[in-house]
């Protein structure tokens, strides 16, 4: 009597999301095969001025976050590229800023005189894992809100900085933050971060 087990490898553009959410290794392979060039290009664009290691780190981080949080992705295969692109962009910017600050600190003593920045302390508090949750939760919002929230809570910019970056009025930014918060606060783990 021949007995066969259930697992076989089959991953296509149609079913990879489903398989990824079920943590099938072939789906991870598929996603790496089809999207790593794209993720790499975004990371390269933003981080090539820093160093090569940071590009690698960013690519690794993005795929790890996707693998660990695949179930959070909602949408069809076509939306997947947008999703992964946005995650990469904000992760890369975050890394850029972190490493840039580090490089500055290494430059000379004058920075020792800097006062502790309240933002830095906030950053410390939001551990990497929570930051990933935040990043992923924000990724469900609609386009413009998504960018505003990414900048406000993931990158922790001020409202005026966001308004400047997106060519909006400060009031418009505040208004959208207010409305978006209501939507986001339905996710329990984000309530604390958004207070």
């Amino acid at each position: 009597m021949n007995i066969k087990g259930g697992e076989m490898v089959r991953c296509t553009a149609k079913n990879f999301i489903c398989r990824l959410q079920n943590q099938k290794e072939d789906a991870l392979e598929f996603v790496i095969e089809h999207y790593s060039g794209f993720v790499h290009a975004i990371a390269y664009k933003i981080l090539s001025g820093i160093n090569k290691d940071s590009i690698d780190e960013c690519v690794n981080d993005v795929f790890l976050a996707i693998w660990q949080n695949a179930e959070q992705f909602k949408g069809e295969s076509e939306d997947f590229k947008k999703w992964i692109g946005m995650l990469t962009k904000y992760k890369a910017i975050d890394l850029f800023r972190k490493l840039e600050k580090q490089q500055q600190r290494e430059k000379g003593d004058e920075d020792l005189l800097q006062k502790p920045d309240i933002k830095d302390i906030q950053q410390e508090f939001l551990k990497k894992e929570q930051r990933n949750d935040l990043l992923l939760a924000i990724s469900h919002l609609e386009n413009i809100d998504r960018d505003i929230f990414m900048m406000r809570y993931y990158l922790q910019l001020t409202n005026s900085e966001i308004a400047e970056a997106l060519h909006l009025s400060k009031a418009a930014v505040e208004n959208r933050l207010y409305r978006g918060k209501k939507k986001l606060a339905t996710t329990i783990q984000l309530k604390e971060a958004l207070i």
């Binding site: 900085e161 970056a165 997106l166």
Partner: peptide, 9 residues
């Protein structure tokens, strides 16, 4: 880093 904020991926 703000230069990258409006990057269209």
């Amino acid at each position: 880093y703000k230069e990258w904020l409006d990057l269209d991926v």
